[in-house]
Simulated assay, not measured.
Amino acid sequence: MNHLTAVIVDDEPLALKLLRSKLANIDGLEVIGEGRNGRQAIDLIMDLSPDLVFLDIEMPGLNGFDVVKNLQNDVLPLIIFTTAYEQYALDAFEIHAVDYILKPIDNERIERAVERAKERKRGGDASNNKPRLINAIHSIHQSKQNTSPHMQERSASFAGNVGDSQVEHKIVIKERDEITLLKQADIKWIDAAGDYVCLHVDGETHIKRSTMKELLDELDASLFKRIHRSTIVNLNYIEKVIPHTKGEFFLDLGEYDRIKVSRNYKEAIKAFLTER
């Protein structure tokens, strides 16, 4: 039998208790941790490496979408959202093959979602988890935005007219009706998710439509190094290096950000540390 370990996260104690009781009846599933908010969800995932997370979307502080955006693709487990979200969000989940359980929680839906998670684990589909999730989140954000044609035209015109001298050492982010210019020095780390990249700055995550290669061409090579096939780090934010298994290790980038360095890219970080 295909065994799965799971973490459950919900800010409502009764919802957490109900989900726990229902999951206890599913064979081949072991709940190894529980959390009440997005920050606890991230900590549990980093510490326990579960196969699967049942994740509430609407939580104070970091919501379920924020949890997804704040984790590397290579450490992100399979996600099943538990939600009372509107239909447009559920449509996006269906289009991008994102699993969800609609509240109030239904036994049959839980069993079906867990079985699909087992199939994805057996088939190795978990490695493509974050691109699927980010595509769904991006679609939901677009659906929620009621931007006027005038605003869209003005934003597009602004983006097209920003001169090279103005965006030097900055990354342009177009998010709905806003354009943000991020200073490269402020970006802690970046990870790829299919056709998008997630840029982590001051506790916020900005999503930009770009490949990793395209973004690397824009970044200051003296500041940024690739540490995984889908992750780039700003060397100036490394505060601690923690050994991990199989020649890998983690980098602490302040209180809340921890990212994994793969064996294939560890020499770049070792060289940086030796130079210090």
Rank of each mutant, 00 (worst) to 15 (best):
L4W: 12
V7M: 06
V7C: 11
P13I: 06
P13K: 09
R20V: 00
S21Q: 07
V31Y: 04
V31E: 05
V31N: 03
I32Y: 03
I32Q: 02
G38S: 06
I42H: 08
L44E: 06
L44C: 07
M46D: 11
M46C: 08
P50N: 13
V53Y: 14
M59A: 09
N63G: 05
N63H: 09
F65I: 06
D66Q: 11
V67K: 09
N70E: 09
L71A: 03
N73R: 10
N73P: 00
V75I: 15
F81C: 04
A84L: 03
A92I: 04
A92V: 02
H96T: 00
A97E: 13
V98C: 08
V98E: 11
D99G: 13
L102C: 09
L102S: 14
P104Q: 07
N107Q: 10
E108P: 01
R112D: 12
R112P: 01
V114S: 05
R116L: 14
K121P: 02
K121T: 05
D125V: 07
L133M: 11
S143F: 11
Q152D: 03
E153Y: 01
R154E: 06
G160I: 00
G163R: 13
E168H: 10
H169V: 01
I171T: 04
K174R: 15
K174A: 05
R176K: 14
T180I: 11
L199V: 05
L215C: 07
E218Q: 15
K225N: 00
R226A: 01
R229T: 04
T231H: 07
I232R: 07
E239V: 01
V241W: 11
H244V: 01
G247A: 04
E248C: 12
F249A: 08
F250G: 01
D252P: 00
L253N: 06
G254W: 12
N264Q: 14
A268N: 12
A271Y: 06
T274K: 14
